[in-house]
């Protein structure tokens, strides 16, 4: 990794600064490398929806949609759009070979019953205890959908998000100030700058994105974490 030392005086994520780290697609691409053959995965909106394009060849992942679809394929082209077959965002979809349809209770039995390997979600904030806030900005219109079930039930909760918000404020924080979706539920965080894992209840920095230094990550993170880069991460 290139050790480009950033000026400590640099303000966090100035809008005009040249982009460092991964693009939104780059975050999705990096996360997709960690999906294993046979995983059953649910995707939230935002960056997570870009993940399927980057799933490595030879890795078969079953995509689950909360409205009762197992084996979701790409969005349907207009000529194949069928209002009886949509994803959780109400967009017309296709099915892959081997797909199955269930009712909403069975769909969430899959989720809460521990049959979903990973849910990939966007986030407003993630705390150093693995708390997630991603469903509601106070003052806006409250709607929750399946987010609370997904984080309560999936075996792994992977967050794909920008490292800081639009105002440059860190989204990895000591304590969430936004309303929680779930407590102690996040297991990994993929951002434009880094990859973090939660292990034994502690947040651990496992990777910096190409061209990103651990110092820059530290500067733009408001959560306490352990640095476990390089060989330590393989332990």
């Amino acid at each position: 990794m290139t050790e480009t030392v950033q000026s400590a005086a640099a303000p966090p994520a100035p809008a005009a600064a040249p982009r460092v780290g991964r693009t939104r697609d780059g975050i999705a691409e990096r996360l997709a490398q960690d999906l294993r053959d046979g995983f059953v995965v649910n995707l939230g909106v935002g960056i997570p929806l870009e993940v399927p394009r980057f799933i490595p060849l030879g890795v078969e992942v079953i995509l689950h949609a909360e409205n009762g679809v197992l084996g979701m394929g790409p969005l349907a082209p207009p000529e194949l759009a069928d209002n009886d077959l949509t994803d959780a965002g109400k967009q017309p979809i296709t099915l892959v070979s081997g797909a199955a349809i269930v009712d909403s209770a069975t769909s969430f039995a899959i989720v809460r019953g521990g049959h979903l390997d990973v849910t990939i979600l966007g986030a407003l904030q993630v705390s150093e205890d693995g708390d997630l806030a991603n469903w509601y900005v106070p003052g806006r219109n409250p709607a929750v959908g399946g987010a609370m079930d997904l984080v309560a039930g999936a075996r792994e909760v992977w967050v794909a998000m920008e490292h800081v918000d639009r105002k440059g404020k860190p989204k990895l924080v000591s304590q969430c100030t936004m309303p929680l979706t779930g407590r102690n539920c996040v297991t990994r965080v993929y951002t434009d700058l880094a990859v973090f894992h939660f292990v034994d209840g502690r947040l651990r920095l496992r990777e910096c994105a190409p061209g990103v230094t651990p110092e820059l990550v530290r500067e733009r993170t408001a959560a306490d974490y352990i640095e476990e880069l390089g060989d330590a991460a393989d332990a």
């Binding site: 909403s104 769909s107 969430f108 959908g145 399946g146």
Partner: peptide
């Protein structure tokens, strides 16, 4: 009025 509940809880409460 709005009784907002998680989607899986809604499904299971009906079931």
């Amino acid at each position: 009025e709005l009784e907002l509940i998680p989607q899986g809880t809604l499904a299971e409460r009906l079931r």
